[in-house]
Amino acid sequence: MSLLRLSQVSLQYGPAEGRDVPPVLQGINLDIRRGDFISVIGRSGSGKTSLLNLAAGFLSPNLGRIEIDGRPVTGPGAERAVVFQDDALFPWRRVEDNVALALKLAGVPREDRLVRAHRWLADVGLDGQGAKQVWELSGGQRQRVGIARALAAEPEFLLMDEPLGALDAMTRDQMHELLLRLWRQSHAGALLITHSVEEALFLSTAVVVLAPDPGRIVLHEEFGYGRRFLDGEDPRALKSEPGFIAARERLLSAIYQEEHA
């Protein structure tokens, strides 16, 4: 089983005007296996997005190691797909061509890649929307295209940087269901950066709380609400459970404790 491992990872941006800048992240240890769904929460500035950028290979750590199955990560790779907060779609391409981008870059013939793109579009609930232009879609639909584009590359790891941050509450709920279904279907390991404690708790097999100055893990706890939802339990009932509410308070405490410490 594939394993994305961060070992004793520290990240520090360069010194500003001769002053030493504190590390953005320090001593991070995190394992993400295929089949895991790990959410990272924490205050602004705690290094959540930097953590994702390290895992994606957009940044290199100053200290520590990032490995996939023992091989060092030296940059972005097709086994790790990224979903961005601002969807990062290409408006000069139609929806289907956005989804097929990874396949095009990999040299897959146009006919094949369009067939696969349409299949992924159907999977995210956008059947028949492939010929549309990106700007004809709503915010929620655009994020679905971003997710379909990431999954079309058939990655081992799906890295998501607050992909639902700009969506309204109802659309977010729909997207939760979609994300969980696609996660189970793709067997990918997922890393989700989010500001929503409830979202993290509901979706994830484990939630990691980061505290700032320097960014470090202060809580790492496992949960199973997403799997229970996929097994047919009602999401509202799950979110009303005393255990869910207690866990949410625990996570919030971990965030606020650091804030008031």
Partner: peptide
Amino acid sequence: SESQIRAARAFG
């Protein structure tokens, strides 16, 4: 945008 460039880089 940085994310557009990163999206393409992430796909190799």
